[in-house]
Write a protein that binds this DNA or RNA. Structure first.
Lengths: 248, 248
DNA sequence: CGACGAGTTGAACTTTGTCAAGCTTCGTGG
DNA sequence: CCACGAAGCTTGACAAAGTTCAACTCGTCG
């Protein structure tokens, strides 16, 4: 069973990285090695807290996590969702304070990403170096999107926008197709991502369902009318703001 | 007159960077050279747009700018405010797509930051290398704060939180003290930062004034009761989440 | 069976946005 | 020197969006 999982993990990693350029034999081997020592985290468990320093980098190979903050009154705001292919923890050599906590939202598996970050410093591993820069930039872009959603979009647009983002991100690692994907989030977690109350998340889902825009059921999201969703959300695909193939 | 300004600019730069470690003679000279070719941007003018690639890095030496996005319906959301000491544009060698536009909010002066970014790559310029990492990280932390404000804070807390952030950031470059600072923003711009309507910004300011928490008048913000403001905002000073002095 | 977590619903309430008008300040041109 | 207009700030009345509270459903797992 362990070995079956490894195959899955490796496929995610390879799919993710080959988007940045062809992988050399050495790079492939490095990915294979990474996939071999996955660590398991159970749902609701913190990978690190907001008080500590950022831990060394790890990469998610299965499951979802959330970067979040707890306010003094106990409310939670999820800053960003992390999924397979995403890096968590410190991406530099410096040990900086973390400012946010990171929790597993589902069953989660991660691998040590230090070898990968290290290899990226080596000019011969150009795909990796490129990937690290692009991933950091994509990360920042996603944060901007989150700010725009929270600051200026109404409930239905906001929800639609997030679903389109998730579909695109998951698609890039082969975890979404045919306008469907698995989303292991409770409405409670969605509320904390979107800045809503749980009740309002529920009502928003109902509304979108009623209008045949999308369906969320048993942890499966189906985009029923991608075009109308995109119009509603004011969506620009990340590929439009092309993250890949940047001349240096 | 130009030379007087240069002195001012230089003071900002030096104050900013000496927080990261002692500056060598060479580093001082580099800063002095930077301060010498400031470029001027008039208010409301875009430094770059959301469609283009990120331009090479520049550093603000006077005035404020905003990283923002325009939605299809014409609304604007300001993602982050930039002020003296802040870098804008691409911080890496890669030319990545920008995803957001950048506009001057006031009279603005910037200097070419490429020499600085270049020097940071040189291990002998350790203060600079350190500064680049720390600044990137501070930037990300500020984005998280913005997400939390927009997602989970009510109008008065949100406003208070932003004012405390601005006070702290400006203080670090010597542009705020005695709980006062100059804020060259219209209520319109504030609305776009905070995700409010202009009217609501106005009402919120009134309310905070009425409760003797803070005063905004003629572009000067006065924190009348920092303690109560901090309680209201659920504020944790950045220095608490210490950005400085990180062991590697 | 019972308990628990997650989803759903209605009703009352609060917060925030919209619209429309009036105000102040300041610079410009007659 | 004054009239004018533009930009920014302020206010009230109303409408819309979102929250809270409390109850109820449903399926799962012990």
């Amino acid at each position: 069973m362990q070995s079956v999982d490894n195959q899955l993990h490796l496929r995610v990693l390879v799919k993710h990285f080959s988007a940045f350029g062809p992988l050399s034999e050495i790079e492939m081997r490095l990915l294979r090695d990474l996939a071999d020592d996955a660590r398991y985290h159970s749902p609701h468990r913190d990978l690190y807290t907001a008080e500590a320093l950022l831990p060394p980098p790890r990469m998610i190979v299965a499951g979802w996590a959330a970067q979040y903050r707890i306010l003094p009154d106990g409310q939670r705001q999820i800053i960003s969702l992390k999924m397979p292919g995403d890096l968590i923890g410190s991406a530099t050599q410096l040990r900086l304070p973390s400012a946010c906590a990171m929790a597993a939202l589902s069953e989660l598996e991660t691998v040590d990403a230090r070898p990968f970050i290290g290899a990226a410093a080596n000019p011969a591993r150009s795909s990796f170096a490129h990937a690290v820069c692009v991933m950091a930039h994509a990360n920042e872009t996603l944060l901007c999107d989150q700010v725009v959603r929270l600051g200026r979009q109404t409930a239905p647009s906001r929800f639609a926008h997030l679903m389109l983002e998730l579909y695109e991100r998951l698609g890039r690692v082969g975890l979404a197709e045919d306008h469907r994907f698995a989303m292991p989030l409770t409405q409670d977690a969605l509320a904390d991502v979107l800045g809503f109350s749980v009740v309002h998340v529920n009502r928003t889902v109902q509304q979108l369902r009623r209008e045949s825009l999308l369906d969320v059921r048993n942890g499966i999201v189906t985009l029923l009318s991608p075009e109308r969703l995109q119009a509603l959300a004011g969506w620009t695909p990340l590929s439009g703001r092309s993250v890949h193939l940047c001349a240096r």
